[in-house]
Design a protein around this nucleic acid. Structure first.
Lengths: 224, 224
DNA sequence: TCATGTTATTGCTGATACTGCAAAGATCAG
DNA sequence: CTGATCTTTGCAGTATCAGCAATAACATGA
């Protein structure tokens, strides 16, 4: 029911959708989203302005649609893996492996973080997408642990913690200038911190300290 | 610098701001935000449409400005209190006390959650506000624990966990129909779950189980 | 009290965004 | 090939929003 019999119609739909979001992303990187009009995106994507409204409710959603979609893979893996470890640890391992195996995808995600800092109007919409993912993940945690998603805080809390761990890691990593090989330890640190009830291990005041030159003064940072 | 010498000007500014957001809230509850125009809000608040644009960037922000602002109190209390306990536990106590002492404020917050479910366009903007709070809280955690907000995942993770604990509790509580006296235990459960690294205590599969009749079938829940 | 500077409010205007509707074009199934 | 279905498009109407200048309200100091 997913990629089964995709006729020409479905193919063209995805194609125009991708064209639009790619055009939106390109123009946004060039001029800033506030300077980009629907009409421009339409020209760039070879569609009519009206068509853009058919696909996206706003410029912001069009830009965000160009972001990474690989999260679904991790969600799948989480649901199918059957370990007896606590969900957070499983998620931590999955994310860590993901950072190791598909660095370009994480890099793309971090690039979106930067794009968001340059274009604040993106933030609300990115967050809305994020919440959808957290809800999805929460349901999976509930199913996996046999808890009730609607009556128990547990699944949602775990999902939120995992999301925060990943996003905080990405944000710090992007801020430090994407240092090679540093993301994975950051992710592991974040997840183990959550699993430890946010109590620092005495031995590691700042265990995965980045180069201090990368973030000399820290006027305003953008986590989450 | 806060409530010091508020001249007539500042007073009137706050007054018109409140008028606008109150009008926006009232009309939204009556007809749904999508059916409300800026012009209507302007009439209701006895200001010109142009003035609304001066105060808020969108209808959504106007509505959200009518929400509870008491979070600042908790942030203040967190910064001023000087306990040696882990920040999450301090925050948990503060929120629990808050739920006990100012139930009407929490109820208002939960009402906003419901309003958001009825008017999905509110969500992105509420989330954006939420993130601002989390960043603020993260900075305070950093200051309190002597960690570096910009170089260390710890402060942001703690702040995110606290935010998730509160919001998840509110969401569940609202979904269950605001049962009297149930919010505080939910909050305590959520915070202690986070402090315990999201590991259930063996004795409590669902320790703060709500009346099962309150949530018979759970088609789509809205945490976070 | 008055005079003057400062700031908020307002109307106007132009640019942009979004939606419903109906026509035109593309794809599909037989 | 033909009719059905769906996508794309143009058009028209409504709504949003920001810049600008004028007006009104408040503040400050004498």
């Amino acid at each position: 029911m997913d990629d089964e019999h995709l006729g020409l119609r479905e193919l063209k739909k995805r194609q125009t959708r991708d064209s639009i979001s790619a055009a939106a992303l390109k123009l946004t990187e060039e001029k800033g989203l506030s300077e980009v009009t629907i009409e421009e995106i339409a020209r760039e994507a070879f569609v009519s302005p009206r068509t853009i409204s058919n696909y996206f409710a706003s410029k912001e959603e069009a830009v965000l649609a160009a972001g990474p979609v690989a999260t679904e893979q991790v969600l799948q893996d989480f649901s199918t893996s059957n370990s007896d470890d606590p969900p957070l640890e499983v998620l931590g391992r999955l994310m860590s492996n993901y950072a190791r195996d598909y660095p370009e995808c994480l890099r793309k995600a971090a690039r979106m973080v930067e794009l968001e800092e340059a274009n604040p109007s993106l933030r609300p919409f990115r967050l809305a997408r994020e919440v959808e993912l957290v809800i999805d993940l929460g349901r999976r945690v509930a199913q996996r642990t046999g808890t009730d998603f609607a009556a128990d805080v547990y699944p949602s809390l775990v999902a939120s913690a995992a999301s925060a761990a990943l996003l905080t890691s990405l944000s710090l990593w992007a801020q430090a200038g994407f240092p090679e090989g540093r993301l994975q330890p950051l992710i592991e640190e974040s997840f183990s911190l959550a699993s430890a009830g946010y109590r620092r291990r005495a031995a590691s005041p700042i265990s995965v300290q980045l180069e201090s030159s990368a973030t000399p003064q820290s006027p305003d940072a953008q986590p989450v």
